[in-house]
Nucleic acid binder design. Structure first.
Lengths: 140, 140
DNA sequence: TATCTAGTTTATAATTATTCTAAAGTAAGT
DNA sequence: ACTTACTTTAGAATAATTATAAACTAGATA
């Protein structure tokens, strides 16, 4: 069914590398996420709403969750812990940090933060990653 | 009803400063949280379970949530964003950071992390706080 | 100290984000 | 074209949290 043109190869490859068959729904999700100039942040609910808004045949919630989860596990998406009851995802998987301002996420390029000192991991453990979240508030 | 002895004054004061009347349930929660040598981390569910385990008359879930929320708003507890579907709280409200290892939270003293470089807040905003989470994995 | 009232507690229902289930549909190998 | 294992989907289930509203109580007042 899926027209297997070169244009979609990159998006299909991400799915395959996540162990997912490139079905229509998944390819559309993959394109929506990765076929753009700038990376962005989203919640699954936001993704679902913005994609389904323009579609007559809606993609189901479960498919969004499954696909996002698999893409995350394969390393194509990064999950952010910013608020305690919504998962934010980032299509920018390079090492970087975030400002968080009342539900809005802003990237901080990796080179804008440098450590002078960092602790060692407890014995038997190693550091998987270091995440900095700078929370913002209004100026007075 | 509440025996207003000096021993409890400090725990009662935390409640009052959070705008809460020092009822029996709340004083017990406040004592459970703050009447100890070392600070600790907890989820509301864990707090409820460990307190109610030894009680014949259970404190209701709503009271735990309300009290924790008010104490947090008053600055007596710190909420941590570590996992996306459970709120962790910390009775250590001083500035510090965390290791996070598969559901387990470990404090990192403030002086163990130093920044060489930090970005400025976007215009109109100021920095509320800077949180570092170092995620750990096993040394295989 | 008895009374009163606004604030509290509780069980339960409601909500939100997410995961599970199982029936109907489809990709891709033969 | 056929087959089979993987997908999609609607809807149910779950988990964390918040809301509701009836019964209860702290603490001010008479």
């Amino acid at each position: 069914m899926q027209k297997m043109n070169n244009k979609n190869k990159i998006f299909i490859d991400k799915l395959r590398s996540a162990g997912l068959r490139p079905t229509n729904q998944r390819v559309e999700i993959s394109k929506f996420l990765f076929n753009r100039k700038n990376t962005f942040h989203f919640t699954v609910e936001e993704l679902k709403n913005s994609m389904n808004l323009k579609r007559s045949k809606k993609i189901s919630t479960a498919t969004f969750y499954n696909t996002v989860h698999a893409l995350k596990s394969a390393g194509h998406l990064k999950e952010l812990s910013l608020e305690n009851n919504t998962s934010y995802y980032d299509t920018n998987i390079t090492s970087h940090h975030h400002f968080f301002d009342n539900g809005k996420v802003i990237d901080i390029k990796s080179d804008k933060i440098a450590f002078h000192k960092l602790p060692e991991a407890p014995k038997g453990k190693k550091i998987k990653n270091v995440e900095v979240v700078i929370r913002l508030e209004n100026n007075n």
